[in-house]
Design a protein around this nucleic acid. Sequence first.
DNA 1: TATCGAATAT
DNA 2: CATATTCGAT
Length: 733
Amino acid sequence: MAETHGTEAAGKFPEGMRVLAVDDNPVCLMLLETLLRRCKYHATTTRDAETALRMLRERTEDFDLVISDVHMLEMDGFRLLELIGLEMDLPVIMQSANGELETMMKGVTHGACDYLVKPVQLKDIKNIWQHVVRKRKPDLRSHNRGDNDSADQKVQSGNAEGGRVGATRTRRKYSRKKRSDGDNYDGNKENMEFSTQKRTRVVWTADLHRDFVEAVNQLGVDNAVPKKILQIMKVNYMTRENIASHLQKYRLYLKRISDYTGMSPDQFPARWRYMNELQCLKNYHEHGRYHLSPAIASSNSSNPFARMNSASAMGTHGLLPTQSVQLRNSKSSLGMRTVGHGGSPLSHAVSEPLRYSSNSRLPHARNCFPSGPSGSSLANISNGSVLDTNYSSNSYADMFCKKLWETNCGFLAHANQFSVQSNCGFSALANQCPEQSNGEFLAPASRFPVQLNGGVLVPANQCPVQSNGGFLAPANQLPVQSNCRFLAPADQFPVQYPDLNNHPLVQMNPPSTNLLSTVGNTHHFPDLGNCSKSWQTTAPSMFHGLYHKDGTSLGPSQTSIPNINQLSNFATSSGQVLMFGNELHGPMSTIMSDSTSVTDFNEQMGPFNIGNNTSSTEMLHRSFTLGSNSSISPTIPSDSSISSTFPGLQVDSFAMPTQMLNGGDTNGIFPVLSDTIDQQDIFDQLDDNNGFLTRTNGPEGTGTLDDIVAGLFNHDFAKGDGAVVDEGQEFVP
DNA sequence: TATCGAATAT
DNA sequence: CATATTCGAT
């Protein structure tokens, strides 16, 4: 059989193969080394396993294969074998003078790819390179199955899944379905039990998941079945079962989304874009401008709505309604989980939610709690600071958003409340809607939110001509919005509200840190050394109950929390919904390709990102770490993302609000002027955000935090009804 | 621990 | 194939 050597094919492999030889017997070791050299391998020798392990750990990639004696003083060869099997993916050959079958069996079942009986001879050593090849090219082995390759034989004979033994870690090592293979299952079972090699599982990386989602989209959610998905994905090491398992989880995830929104998953792009545009409008209203980025805006930068090509707009952050959390320790996620916000202080206080099915752990309201703006909570609100405490969760932010949309942004508004439409609204310009033979107009996708198919036929008589010559497309012409008009009256727009009348109790911990020293209403940050930055508080709170008696910030130790069950359906540990955006990437591509990158005020400005998980303590630390003026401060994260987004861009080492960096794609958030990031602008935004969160002198009902929180609790704090939350007390509205 | 993601069973 | 249960982690 012609062996393929993979990457070595071009070279002289196996010549120069790097072998680490371990034997505490110097004579044996020397003999082994000699043999290795004679085979033109590159041999490294050591007399103790500890050293070998250290060498391997430090530079795994410098070795191709390990030969170890079984009987050694300090560390048994089997132990070494085990550790190598666990930590790295190297072929290991055991050798000993003991030719007992039992010992050899132990070696092989513990993951050794070969077992040599001393005295080792040249012919034994000559062929060991095959183990390396096999290890590196797992798919070769399926072809090898049944081949009479001598080195193969030994390995395969003890294992039903010889074709997969020793596969790289991301590959399945064995599979029960192979039971029906016909060969000796009992023996295999034993091997499984004895095997000390890490059991390999498919790890769904973001990339894999993206491919998966693409495949699902390609097939259509309803038609997507594991087998077809697998075919499209073309991942040779995965089984249909792997896909099925993931699909199961993915469907549950989609279900959570639709439960949350009342929309089917494919309706999301519309909603999303709508939110985005509302945000844009809001920014425009408040600031009278859009932030166009000369560095990144393309030629048709006059289209202020076409900014779907930012990661934030794509949903990696920001515009997605923020989430409440199911409290638990953080873990990585593909975004398909119920939980979020790692390290919540409440994690110990909650129990596992009801499990209707083990893969669908539907969140129980009890496991969720709302919190305030980024890194803050009621405690922070109470003293007017926006500092971190241990509270973190997003559902307040969510409600906050909704309130703001309602009161400020016209989320539930009629079309005529979108004044910006007069120049750049949702209406399609007539000359961009080619008339069809049937008298209808084909609106370009970029003008309408959900035209996954590249356009929509808008009957002319349903598109009232606007003063600018555009047509206002009614939502019912937009395919995905079957149950609501795009510019619909409020009652037709399915905004999800939390059930504020149902308040399960949730334990809340008081903040564990108090980094602040308070001077007047300005907070200083002692941890920051010489840093002169301070955080101006802007608003005292009406929530007196949240003050500690001595005036320091204190959160409620127990309070009533609105039932936010509806909001708890998706969350990620970072407050981001990573895969969500990715999933939309495909459907959105039509829009994106016809879009212009526009830097708006970042998500911080609006309500959407308030629930960012980035603790503001951390943020402040980073933000106000003042670097030298000559280089990028290492404390600034995401430098690389900046520079990759803006090649050649000089980033001054100023205080960079981390949260902005985290808050989305730089395309979407950085005010970029003349190829430099405008520091002042960032701080302006930051200040504005802070003010936005905490101002008290806004128009009535326009979304001061107190207004909103009061609203959440159905309680008129403004009337001075007094504290409702106190330490150890239950809040009764 | 509780509870995840993936594997496996039904 | 869909759904439920189990498994192996952390």
